[in-house]
Computed example of a mutant assay.
Amino acid sequence: MAEVGVVSGDRVVALVGNPRSGSRTLGAAVEVAETVAKRAGHGEPVTVVDLSALGAHLFAPAPSPRAEIARELVTGADVLVVASPTYKGTYTGLLKAFLDGLPSRALAGTVALPLLVMGDPRHALAVEVHLRPLLVELGALVPTPGLALVEADLPRLQELLEPWQAQVEPYVTAAPADFR
């Protein structure tokens, strides 16, 4: 796994919008991305764009090279896992600020897999109602239901991923040639 705050690989990218470094959201996003990549037969390492390391760069008055590198990694992904904790019933402002910096249709042809980590299952629809439309607006193909994970269930994440992964695998395996 490579991280940004620096760079590598490009096929499967995990974009993490938690403002806290070392968060449970980061751990879940990496595990989901690595599972998706492995099951789909992608040989490259997963790249992680951890926005907790880029917050100041996203809000700087002048364009930041670090933020631009992160955006290039995200827009170059074939498969993009987009993860955020649920704040006030939706994704974080940090994730929104990062995605707002992308050009129109920047994710065209990218298979995007939305993931929200939440404290309460009552927020489960936020992944479909808020995060999916944002990714679609950016041109991403979001072929399956997003993944809504309750924090208390994170210790059994691999077990929870099995049925979701069965839905995701055909789309991830076909990416990118079939969708670009």
Rank of each mutant, 00 (worst) to 15 (best):
A97M: 04
L135M: 02
R132H: 01
G22Q: 09
D50I: 03
A33T: 05
E3S: 12
E137F: 11
S21H: 11
R132W: 02
D78V: 00
P65V: 02
S23D: 11
E68V: 07
T25F: 12
L154T: 05
T92K: 05
T75Y: 02
V127A: 07
D100P: 11
P103C: 00
R105H: 11
A56W: 03
V32N: 05
A174T: 05
A70C: 09
P103M: 00
A33E: 04
E34A: 12
G41K: 08
L125K: 04
D100V: 05
P63D: 13
A140G: 00
L73E: 14
N18Y: 08
E162K: 14
L116D: 03
A60I: 01
G139C: 02
L141D: 01
S104C: 00
G139W: 03
L94M: 13
V36A: 06
V48N: 06
H123W: 13
S84C: 11
G89I: 03
P65H: 00
V12Q: 05
D100S: 06
E159G: 06
N18S: 15
K88D: 08
L131C: 01
S8G: 14
S84W: 07
P163N: 08
A60E: 10
P170Y: 12
L138H: 03
T90K: 09
P176E: 04
P45Y: 05
E44K: 09
V172A: 12
P103F: 01
V16Y: 06
R156G: 13
